[in-house]
């Protein structure tokens, strides 16, 4: 495995009893890349992502995340990654300031760092006036943007985004992707899942999981050429329709 890969996975497998959720997947993610991780419901995306975040132990296979071995240094991995999901992001009953303080605190930022971070972050998102308001009073789109910034608070090497834009309005969705581009241009690796196929086009490379395996992995342009499809949606549908796994 080469050092300049942010994520390097070899034959990674996860079995639950006799059910193989993730079946010997192998791929590399370059540093600073926006990597789209697609798949139908139940294809094994979430399980794979959990393993890479160090939340679940693989049954077999090798993986290096942010330069650390998944088996030996799961705790170090957690320090070098950020994670944001659609379901869990921020505490609704805490204010924006308190949320930032809390997440800064768990990643071991000093009080001074938290203070400056809070300022820049709030300025960036134009949330100055909302700083002391409860998160639940924010519109969903703002919550998601804030939650992304909070996931980036400790300047992780890799950030994992699990369906970050579900249910968000189209304008905010694009603003969200601007945040992703910015993070990537500063060298952060972005690992993202989505159900919006147009968003797949924004990724540098895209992998598509079918029945626990990665069936396709390439740039969106190359994938469309290979599958002779006009859009990523078409590529996805062609692949996902092959799925045999009983739902």
């Amino acid at each position: 495995m080469k050092e300049n890969f942010a994520i390097s996975v070899r034959e990674l497998t996860k079995r639950f009893n006799d059910f193989t959720a993730v079946n010997a997947i192998t791929f590399d993610v370059k540093q600073g890349e926006i990597f789209g991780f697609l798949g139908a419901n139940g294809a094994g995306k979430t399980t794979a992502m959990r393993m890479l975040c160090g939340l679940s132990f693989p049954t077999s296979g090798q993986a290096m995340v942010a330069g650390y071995d998944l088996y030996q240094d799961a705790e170090k991995i957690k320090k070098s990654i950020g994670y944001m999901s659609q379901k869990f992001s921020l505490y609704e009953d805490l204010t924006i300031r308190e949320n930032i303080r809390f997440y800064g605190g768990i990643y071991g930022l000093s009080d001074h760092e938290i203070k400056t971070k809070t300022e820049t972050l709030v300025h960036q998102l134009h949330l100055e006036e909302q700083l002391n308001k409860l998160v639940k009073s924010l519109p969903l789109g703002w919550k998601q943007k804030l939650s992304f910034s909070v996931a980036m608070i400790h300047q992780p090497k890799i950030v994992f985004l699990d369906e970050p834009t579900g249910g968000v309005d189209p304008v905010t969705r694009r603003e969200f992707w601007t945040l992703i581009y910015e993070a990537a241009s500063k060298g952060t690796t972005v690992f993202v899942t989505t159900h919006y196929m147009d968003e797949a086009e924004y990724c540098d490379r895209v992998s598509i999981m079918v029945d626990g395996r990665i069936d396709a992995l390439d740039t969106p342009l190359e994938l469309k050429r290979k599958f002779n499809a006009p859009s990523m949606e078409e590529v996805f549908v062609q692949l996902a329709r092959k799925a045999k796994r009983a739902e």
Partner: peptide
């Protein structure tokens, strides 16, 4: 009410 939220592109179709 939002029957297809969180459902993949194929199932949505």
């Amino acid at each position: 009410d939002e029957p297809t939220t969180g459902v993949d592109a194929v199932s949505r179709k």
